[in-house]
Design a protein around this nucleic acid. Structure first.
Length: 303
DNA sequence: TATCCAAGGTAAGTT
DNA sequence: AACTTACCTTGGATA
């Protein structure tokens, strides 16, 4: 086992708990089993763990990563050097002050930034992210999370670290080989055939979420909707939380409420038009960062 | 203890 | 292209 610590002085504001428990990613688990239950003021100091698939340009092999925030540093344990992995997954390379400073000066945004200072977007691996958000339809965050953990435990490989074993998220092939019934057994409900069919599309090379890299934003969103169970909203989530399209503003129920309450003139009827309007209202290039703060702020009851 | 309802929506069928 | 409706499951609220 390798281990180490990342001093946050060079990273800037960071809040691990807010980043991992804000409903952007469903691929991390909290070691104490209390994911989404007890929230702390800053950082949290709980251990979080995940199994990371190989990532182009970052890592060649699957790795277990455990991390916690203590005072002004991130302590980690891993099967490999976790610094590049954590930097990638938790966007430690973002200049958060510059990003948030570039968004619009709106009271709602200022309050949300203040409430969750240090929260960052994540860079989830594309396929697990895609499946996570297919599962998110009409679901609460705790149940979306449980579905991902259950799929890993039921169908994924196990990887060992320091005498314990961790379950990796299934590969497209591993999920495509399951039956709809097997997925329904994990309480996926009507999402089961969507997940199975989408996994099959990726496994067969029929389509690949990573293929959108380099596309214009709205073309990328259109591309992702070819996957079964993926409409505009889920496509935006995958673009924002995995594929580096930080201007994407997923129009979920919470943001739609915020639009109705605060920016009613942005409601232009259709998804594409409303999305465009709120993106401009939040400041363009990093509107997705603003969206994620607002989402968490409203969902946590900040009002 | 029973019933009802909403939860980060999407696909398929109608106008 | 815009507008309905059905869809699995379950935790929490209401009676």
């Amino acid at each position: 086992m390798e281990s180490g610590a990342i001093p946050l002085s060079s990273v800037g504001a960071f809040d691990l708990q807010a980043t991992v428990e804000s409903g952007q990613t469903y691929l991390w688990d909290r070691a104490d089993g209390n994911m989404y239950e007890t929230m702390s003021a800053h950082g949290g100091d709980h251990w979080y763990e995940t199994v990371v698939p190989p990532i182009d340009g970052v890592s060649d092999e699957r790795a277990v990563v455990r991390v916690r925030q203590v005072d002004d540093r991130l302590e980690w344990e891993s099967t490999t050097d976790a610094v590049p992995l954590l930097t990638h997954l938790l966007r430690l390379d973002d200049d958060l002050d510059a990003i948030l400073g570039s968004t619009s000066e709106l009271p709602l945004l200022e309050r949300a930034y203040e409430a969750y200072r240090g929260m960052r977007l994540v860079r989830d691996p594309p396929f697990p992210c895609l499946v996570s958000f297919i599962c998110s339809a009409q679901m609460r965050v705790s149940r979306i999370h449980r579905m991902q953990m259950d799929m890993a435990d039921a169908f994924g490989e196990t990887v060992a670290l320091d005498g314990r074993t961790y379950s990796a998220f299934p590969t497209p092939e591993q999920l495509a080989d399951r039956t709809e019934a097997e997925l329904r057994d994990l309480s996926l409900g009507y999402r089961a055939p969507y997940v199975r069919r989408t996994a099959e599309m990726v496994a067969d090379g029929e389509a690949d979420p990573a293929a959108v890299r380099g596309m214009a934003y709205e073309d990328a969103r259109e591309y992702l909707t070819r996957f079964v169970g993926v409409g505009d909203k889920v496509a935006d989530c995958v673009l924002l939380f995995s594929l580096e399209f930080l201007e994407a503003v997923p129009l979920d129920t919470w943001i739609r409420t915020a639009i109705a309450d605060y920016y009613p003139e942005c409601d232009a009827g259709g998804y594409a038009e409303t999305s465009r309007a709120i993106r401009e209202r939040f400041g363009g290039d990093y509107a997705g960062y603003a969206q994620t703060y607002v989402f968490y702020y409203l969902r946590a009851g900040g009002e």
